[in-house]
Design a protein around this nucleic acid. Structure first.
Length: 553
RNA sequence: GCGCCCUUAGCUCAGUGGAUUAGAGCGUCUGGCUACGAACCAGAAGGUCGGGAGUUCGACUCUCUCAGGGCGUACCA
């Protein structure tokens, strides 16, 4: 349940009741807003609705607030309703209800925070979509982690969600990949050949060529570059999958660009655009009239060589997305796509589909810092930082956390030293430590031979410490967080939430002991129940971020 | 030149048009372990929210403008 929405409904009812009772004049009730006050003394929820209604009702805001407060329906979770100048209504949750909520958290488990915004809707998230011409590098990882985290939140919000990777296994880059692999193969056979400017020069190509040599000896010399390309791209795609699995990203669909050619979709899309009059020929190329959709100049769809630009299959791909019946499509693009993303949507519109179901989420660059110095990255020079290397160095959890620790609009400095640091400077451990501390309580409990289910019937009304209640209140924000994430498409909020959850947890942990001799038995059981809920919630929230919940660190 | 993004505490950044005192982490300073993990907690100091104008009962938040910074601007993807 989402208390903020429940309260909106309740306030709406209160206004209606007040109007019937003549305490408020009649007017059409506008959209109501329930918010979380910053100041704890202002309650758990507050509504400024009376301020907005002042003009409509032609009454003093304070009087309106008073009338609403008087007519609020009775609700089990609502402790008090107060009116504060200049006209705010403050709601406070009932302590008994909060205490019982501990059992709700335990009962709902991995479903805690579930909202129904996406029930019955199909969503797709596309991210990473790197070319299968080399290892995944750290820059691509940001979009991948953002996309995967969003996918997890969207599933909790009820969306049937497909995480999809658009796999550019066609076109010029695969040709170059094939040529590069063949040249390396021939080099391994002792031929004196040099790679050209556009060839891929990374060592992984040599490894692939060596594989072919080991499997086939020197029998492949007459094989085409296409043969080498087919082998290399499959090989690289496999290793990309493996790399992504290491960071806990598993795609539901790898959509092959090549399939758009095999089914004829690319040319179908081109013909459809031609028929609708959006294509013209100039300088031997075929141009798309993107200026009709507000672009500053028209763009080439088919080069004078007869090959399509990347734009053409991209449009066909998004055309296909439109036809697959998704209610929501999220495209995550890095800084290199900032300019081109809109052009693809212009293509979809030109093909007669609305594009409001597509949300393009852009993110800024990521810089790697080692020992306080920026690690320069250049794809051309082959000096990009491979995700695998960072995984070897710091592991998946810190990468996942730091990749979504900032709004996508901010560039990120990824500090390798900090990611490795197991200290209070590192928020990753601060959060995971909350789970570890809970685990420690249960471990000790069982080591002492005590009944592991002893807390099942604990008297939760004994959880009266303000720090315990503060934790439960923070837990209640999870559904609101999920809603925020899936409506703004901003995954970074969860890192702040998880940190705040850990902060209120550690406060409770410091003040509310369980196994200490001075704690009376009934309270001990209630607190054990409390930490059981906390442990489960941390495991859940860490899982939403794709991170592990360690028992010990 | 044009487009997108950014400018909030010494540093890195949150902040969904609302309530005296704009938040968090790091850093700095002061305290706290014979207590389930101190990888923690308690407290202090630190701000003309880049400048200016406008809309509003009310602006860090919306609009315009100026200044500074990042990224992009292919018949590459």
């Amino acid at each position: 349940m989402q208390l903020d929405h429940e309260l909106e409904t309740a306030v709406f009812q209160a206004i209606q009741t007040a109007q019937k009772a003549g305490d408020l004049p009649s007017f059409d009730i506008p959209e109501l807003k329930i918010e979380r006050p910053r100041e704890a003394s202002h309650g758990d929820y507050a509504s400024p609705v009376a301020l907005g209604l002042a003009r409509l009702a032609r009454m003093a805001p304070l009087k309106i607030a008073q009338a609403i407060a008087t007519h609020m329906p009775t609700l089990d979770y609502l402790g008090s309703v107060e009116v504060a100048p200049p006209g705010f209504i403050n709601f406070r949750l009932a302590a008994p209800w909060l205490q019982q909520h501990v059992n709700t958290i335990i009962a709902e488990g991995q479903n805690y925070g579930r909202i129904h915004l996406g029930d019955g809707k199909k969503a797709q998230i596309e991210c990473v979509s790197a070319n299968p011409t080399g290892p995944i590098h750290i820059g691509r990882t940001r979009g991948g982690v953002m996309g995967d985290t969003l996918a997890r939140a969207m599933r909790l919000a009820g969306y049937e969600t497909v995480l999809e990777y658009y796999y550019n296994d066609a076109g010029r880059q695969v040709t170059m990949l094939g040529e590069s692999t063949k040249l390396r193969y021939l080099q391994l056979l002792g031929q004196d050949i040099t790679l050209e400017k556009d060839h891929y020069k990374g060592d992984y190509i040599i490894d692939i060529a060596r594989e072919l040599l080991e499997q086939h000896g020197d029998t492949l010399q007459e094989q085409s570059a296409e043969f080498f390309g087919d082998y290399a791209k499959e090989r690289i795609a496999q290793s990309q999958k493996e790399t992504l699995r290491r960071i806990n990203i598993v795609f539901d669909v790898y959509y092959r660009e090549q399939s758009l050619y095999e089914t004829g979709k690319v040319w179908e899309a081109l013909e459809a655009l031609q028929e609708k009059g959006y294509v013209y020929k100039k300088d031997g190329a075929q141009w798309f009239k993107t200026t009709e959709f507000g672009d500053e100049k028209d763009r080439v769809l088919v080069k004078s060589t007869g090959e399509p630009t990347y734009r053409m299959p991209d449009i066909a791909y998004h055309w296909d997305k439109a036809q697959r019946g998704f209610d929501l499509v999220v495209d995550l693009f890095g800084p290199d796509h900032h300019a081109t993303a809109p052009q693809v949507l212009m293509g979809v519109r030109a093909l007669g589909y609305p594009t409001d179901f597509v949300r393009t989420i852009l993110h800024q660059i990521i810089t790697i810092i080692r020992d306080g110095i920026e690690v320069k990255m250049s794809t051309r020079a082959g000096t990009f930082v491979a995700l695998d290397d960072v995984l070897d160095e710091v592991g998946a959890d810190p990468i996942r956390y730091f990749m979504i620790s900032r709004s996508g609009n901010s560039p990120i400095d990824f500090d390798l030293n900090l990611a490795l640091e197991k200290s209070d400077k590192n928020p990753v451990y601060y959060i995971q430590n909350a789970h570890v501390r809970c685990a420690g309580i249960f471990r000790k409990w069982e080591e002492e031979g005590l009944d592991p289910d002893a807390d099942a019937t604990a008297d939760l009304s004994l959880l009266t410490h303000e720090n315990e209640l503060a934790f439960i209140r923070k837990a209640l924000e999870l559904p609101e967080l999920v809603e925020l994430m899936v409506t703004t498409f901003e995954p970074h909020h969860i890192t702040f939430y998880s940190y705040e959850l850990a902060a209120v947890f550690h406060k409770a942990y410091e003040t509310c002991r369980v196994l200490h001799s001075e704690v009376p038995e009934p309270l001990r059981l209630a607190r054990l129940r409390f930490y059981r809920a906390a442990k489960q919630l941390f495991a859940h929230v860490l899982d939403l971020m794709g991170m592990s919940a360690p028992e010990v660190m």
